[in-house]
Amino acid sequence: MTGIWTRCNNCRRILYKQDILDNLFICPECNFHFRLSAIDRLNMLFDLGQYELIDQDIFPEDPLGFKDTKSYAVRLKENIKKTGLSDAVLNAVGTMDGIRIIMSAMEFAFMGGSMGSVVGEKITRAFERALEENIPAVVISSSGGARMQEGILSLMQLMKTSSAIANLDKGGIPYISVLTDPTTGGVTASYAMLGDINIAEPNSLIGFAGPRVIEQTIKEKLPKGFQRSEFLLHHGMLDDVVERRNLRSYIIRVLRLFLNKPRTE
């Protein structure tokens, strides 16, 4: 969003940008939730917006020498420059209502939040650290799926991250998965769907196959609301749909329940 004025993607109203910023990037007119950057997520969820970024020194490679209309190596450089991040996820430790947690927040602006080796590695490290430190893990997903430019290595990150979650089961470590617009493909088919609870922001696109692929395959129009949060809630795939303004308090409440730690006055 550049400039003073902007248009809501949903209700098409022209809005004063500061009004949206002051409102957690939610349209004050129609409640549309704009996409957030990984940094915004961390700032919004941790106590006083304070946390320590970890696993910051991991950078992507181009193991396949992949080149489509542009080479992957160039794409990476451009995305690193554009986002100021090394890849599509940030890991951070900090507290929520005084409870120490580890959080991974995905960055959709970095190659559509796609998961290659770096995302798989960082998510896995977050789960491993949660187990080591005996602290809960929270992941905020936003991703188009596995990163095609890293081929089979990307596909295998689904197993790597899911295996790490298997260890959390054994260790009794809570893991909260938050799905945001959009979360599709390989990320949905691995850690995003494997939370002890899975919650999503309103009207987020969530699914495995992308809607365009399904439409082209079945050659019919998709029903209204298909693959949106409310649709997934209805079909039993989510524990709840939580508005952004309630997200922090909701996560804290669930953490307290899972940790058996009632709020003390």
Binding site: L158, A166, S190, A192, M193, A209, F226, F231, G236, M237
Partner: peptide, 19 residues
């Protein structure tokens, strides 16, 4: 890639198998 496969949670089914 079908409507029912999504309704029945194919992403969850795959993920759960992996775990």
């Amino acid at each position: 890639p079908g409507i029912q496969a999504e309704e029945k949670g194919q992403a969850e089914a795959i993920a759960y198998n992996l775990k």
